[in-house]
Simulated assay, not measured.
Amino acid sequence: MEDDDILDGQGSSEGPQQRPQSLMLTFFGNHVLEEGDLCVYSGSIIDVLGRVGVGEQAVRSTLTRMVNRGLLRRQREGRKMFFGLTPQATRVLQDGRTRIWRQGAVNDDWDGSWTLLGFSLPDSWKRQRHDLRSRLTWSGFGALYSGLWIAPGKVDVGAVVAELGLADHVKIFHAQADDATDIAQMIHGTWDLESIAARYVTFDKRWTARLDAGAGDDPIGTRLRLVSEWLWTIRTDPRLPARHLPPDWPARAAQETFRRVAQHTERPARLMARDLLETTQLR
């Protein structure tokens, strides 16, 4: 999942302005991933994404673009067009599901190990360099030096490197820091902790204010915005060791707020999706 698939970097009082493809992936992650070989009618997708501010033309063009990129597959039923996940999109969403629901935003059980990845790419490979850096960021890496990236713990990025076709240009090591290394100083020099913390604080304030309202009149739209914004919030957080972070690190409070809102909206959104979404089995 690349940077330009997730966000456009702008924000408002309603939160970060999500790109249509990010919202589309979140929609399929919320309502299709767990259902197996299911396709959703384009009209249903237009309805749901319209609830979070994405117009019909933007939805249609995003669906076409995602089909062309191998993320969605089309299936015609009479005069209606349905869309389902491809294996590639399923892998992306399963990775996101692990990050959101299983790993969590706070790393209390770090074992002291690090994963180091060094790469050297030709100057002309700008797209490959962008793709690699984007995938490394999502996997928890930060740039220790220009061609040497580091992540806490043992991170398996071999499949990512192979998928990008860069195995011959990348070297991966697992190691522990020497006693002479000031880990806290290294973390502050490698990652923008202020920016990461600010995302959590902003998320926590905005969604805490919505807790009293419960699921509201539009739980499916609320949950879509919630999960998409949480993905944006954790996008650049490498889950650094809690013992080397400030004691008031805001990820813990933000995660608690996210899980509370998610719990409040889960059942109402599922019931609403059952009534609202027109689906068919993928052939």
Rank of each mutant, 00 (worst) to 15 (best):
W125C: 09
W110V: 08
L116G: 04
R127Y: 01
W125Y: 08
L136P: 09
R133A: 10
Q94F: 10
G104I: 06
D111F: 02
A105T: 07
D108K: 05
S146C: 07
W101V: 06
G96D: 11
T98S: 09
D111M: 09
S146H: 15
F119S: 03
S146G: 07
L144T: 05
W149K: 05
R102K: 13
D123M: 11
S124C: 09
V157P: 07
S124Y: 04
P122L: 05
V157N: 06
R97M: 11
I100S: 01
R99E: 14
D131Y: 02
Q128F: 12
A151R: 05
R99F: 10
L117D: 01
V106F: 06
G118D: 05
D109N: 12
R97W: 14
S134I: 01
S113A: 02
V155F: 07
W138I: 05
K154E: 14
R97G: 09
G118S: 09
D109Y: 09
L144A: 09
L121C: 10
D111K: 13
R127K: 15
W125V: 07
D123R: 12
V106L: 04
L148D: 03
L148K: 04
D156H: 01
F141G: 03
A105S: 13
F141V: 08
L144R: 02
F141M: 01
G147F: 03
S139R: 15
G96W: 14
W101I: 09
D109H: 10
K126P: 11
K154R: 15
A143H: 13
D123H: 07
S146V: 05
D108V: 00
R135G: 10
L121K: 08
G104V: 06
W138R: 15
R99Y: 08
G142K: 12
G158M: 12
K126W: 04
I100P: 00
G147M: 00
D95L: 15
K126R: 15
V155I: 14
R97E: 14
A143D: 07
G140Y: 08
H130N: 13
S124T: 07
I150G: 05
K154Q: 13
Q94K: 15
K126D: 01
D123W: 00
D108A: 07
K126V: 10
G112M: 03
G140L: 08
G147D: 06
P122E: 03
